[in-house]
């Protein structure tokens, strides 16, 4: 194993520890937008990078329960749904064990299942997941913009509006990206292209 490969292998745990450092943690939790759109996605990335630490035996067992990646993507969706709720993000700031739950469940129940399931998912499953993710970005953005009261007691209403606009922008970007890729890009449908080129 080269040094580079070693670094890459340990990128997940290193990022995990970095995010847990109190100054980083406080900085990323200072606004709703940062917590929701930077901290939580980075924690999910930690989970994605933890994939190499899963022993092959465990992967084999998991795969038996994860046909087409559906179970894993569902699990990731539920975990994401919980951490998208303003109330949970709010209490992560006030209640230590919720914060701990965030730092463990986002990598383990969101990022890792995505890493295990995404390569196993076919075009249709990925499509449904992406359409639903895009729709959710729009819904949450809309919700944040129109909510009459502050959804989180720790954050200001203006911050909530910013997060709402950012979510709408993310939804629009995802739609454009998907549309562009399907219309003019190269799409690997169930790996058939890869096989034929190999």
């Amino acid at each position: 194993m080269t040094r580079l490969q070693t670094v890459v292998r340990w990128a997940g745990p290193i990022l995990w520890l970095t995010l847990a450092l109190p100054p980083v943690r406080h900085a990323l939790e200072s606004t709703l937008t940062l917590q929701m759109l930077v901290q939580i996605p980075l924690l999910a990335l930690v989970g994605w990078w933890l994939r190499p630490f899963l022993p092959d035996r465990a992967v084999k067992v998991l795969n038996a329960w994860n046909r087409g990646g559906i179970s894993g993507l569902l699990l990731a969706s539920f975990a994401a749904m919980i951490w998208m709720l303003p109330r949970t993000m709010d209490s992560a700031l006030n209640v230590p064990w919720v914060e701990l739950a965030k730092f463990t469940s986002v990598p383990v129940l969101l990022g890792l299942p995505l890493a295990v399931s995404w390569p196993r998912a076919g075009f249709v499953v990925r499509g449904v997941f992406l359409v639903e993710a895009t729709a959710t970005a729009f819904r949450l953005g809309w919700l944040y913009l129109v909510s009459p009261q502050r959804l989180c007691s720790n954050y200001l209403l203006g911050d909530q509006q910013l997060a709402g606009n950012a979510l709408l922008a993310i939804g629009a970007a995802m739609s454009l990206l998907l549309a562009w890729k399907l219309m003019w890009g190269h799409v690997d449908v169930d790996g058939s292209h890869r096989r034929s080129h190999a």
Binding site: G122, F123, V124, G127, V128, V131, K181, L182, M183, W184, G185, H186, V187, V189, D190, S192
Partner: peptide, 23 residues
């Protein structure tokens, strides 16, 4: 709507496999 989406995605997969992309 989910039913329609499943059918369209399956059709899109089939079409893309043969023609490369929707364009």
């Amino acid at each position: 709507g989910v039913g329609s989406l499943l059918f369209y995605l399956d059709a899109a997969a089939g079409i893309i496999k043969v023609h490369g992309n929707l364009g």
